Simulated assay, not measured.
Amino acid sequence: MDEAVTTALDAAFTERSVERLTDVGPSWNGANETVGVVFADGGRAFCKVAIDGDGTRIARELAVLRYVAAERPIAVPEVLAADPDADPPYLVTGPAPGRELLDAWEERECDAEGGPRCEALLRRVGATLATLHAERFETHGEIVGSHDRDGLALERAPWPDVLLKTIERTREIGTSERLGHHYDAVIDCVEANRDRLGDAPAALLHGDVAMPNLFVVGDEPVGDADAGGIAPIDWELAHVGDPARDLVRAEDQLLNGFDTRGPDRYAAALRAGYAERAGGLPAGFAARRPIYEVVRMLGRSGFVDQWTTYVDEPMDALVDRAEAELRARLEAV
Rank of each mutant, 00 (worst) to 15 (best):
Y183W: 15
A96E: 00
R156Y: 12
L154S: 08
H133I: 02
A130Q: 04
L152P: 02
A120Y: 09
T175G: 03
V186S: 02
A134Y: 12
L101E: 00
I167H: 03
E142D: 14
L197W: 08
N193Q: 01
E177L: 14
A192F: 11
H140E: 11
L121I: 01
T175S: 02
G174A: 11
E142W: 13
G94H: 00
E177Y: 13
P97W: 05
D188A: 15
P221M: 05
V190G: 06
N213H: 00
E220N: 02
P221C: 08
R108V: 11
L101D: 00
L121E: 05
V217M: 06
T175M: 06
A202T: 04
E172Q: 15
D111I: 07
E168S: 14
H182I: 13
P212M: 00
E172N: 15
N193R: 09
R99V: 14
T128C: 08
T166Y: 00
D184I: 13
S146M: 07
L164S: 13
T139L: 08
E119D: 15
V216G: 08
L197M: 08
I187S: 11
E107W: 10
G151S: 10
G114S: 07
L204F: 00
P97N: 05
V222P: 03
L154G: 05
H147S: 12
